[in-house]
Design a protein around this nucleic acid. Structure first.
Length: 197
DNA sequence: ATATCGATTATCT
DNA sequence: GATAATCGATATG
């Protein structure tokens, strides 16, 4: 798997896992965006290799975490072989385990009970956005950039629990102005945890 | 429901 | 010096 568009589709339905055992945080990937190399002006790799985007030019399966708007982190998965650029932005997760921890990190600790299953309207505020999910999973550039997401031994990895994605919707990417017409956003049809339908 | 706006700083030109 | 793959709040219909 190399082309970010193929990797994006393959990632839908997989599970992002932080930590191990009973306290592990888990969330199903329900929305992603592909960022290509040459020809995709919206991609961070568009203007060549820099210290910030170096992971995108490295081997696939690694975390590219960037900081933006002075306060937010976003998580991407590198796709290509060494030397080529391409990645997939993880935009939204459906919380599966560790909702209490996620709520606390998101500043929603006082708004929910000690129950593990949150009411729907609060659950949607845990990880239905690229910066929200990083906050919920405590993902930062200092701690996670370059991490191997394919290893179960890694503190942050992506697993497969057998879930099969049904219908995948293709749309234009959110929050960009350059190359905005490209249909590189993908999400699970009908899933309530997508950042926006 | 949709629109606009401010926060806040690493990174790049 | 300008920008930014966002979010949450506020205003308006």
């Amino acid at each position: 798997m190399r082309d970010p568009r193929a990797v994006a589709r393959a990632l839908l339905g997989k599970v992002l896992v932080r930590g191990r055992g009973k306290r592990a945080l888990m969330g199903r990937i329900v929305e992603v965006e592909a960022y290509l190399g040459a020809g995709d002006a919206a991609a961070h790799a568009a203007s060549g290799l820099t210290r910030r985007n170096a992971v995108i030019f490295g081997p696939g399966g690694h975390a590219y975490v960037y900081f933006t708007y002075g306060m937010h982190y976003c998580l991407n998965v590198s796709c290509m072989e060494e030397g080529e650029a391409g990645c997939v932005l993880i935009r939204a997760l459906e919380p599966l385990a560790g909702q209490g921890t996620m709520a606390r990190r998101r500043g929603l600790g006082l708004e929910c009970s000690s129950r593990n299953t949150l009411p729907g309207r609060l659950a949607r505020r845990l990880a239905s956005g690229p910066a929200m999910l990083c906050e919920a999973f405590a993902i930062t550039r200092a701690r996670d950039n370059g991490r191997d997401l394919t290893s179960k031994e890694s503190g942050l990895w992506i697993g497969d629990d057998g879930y099969a994605a049904r219908r995948i919707v293709t749309a234009r990417r959110i929050g960009i102005s350059k190359s905005a017409e490209l249909p590189l956003r993908y999400f699970l049809s009908g899933n309530g945890f997508v950042s926006r339908s």
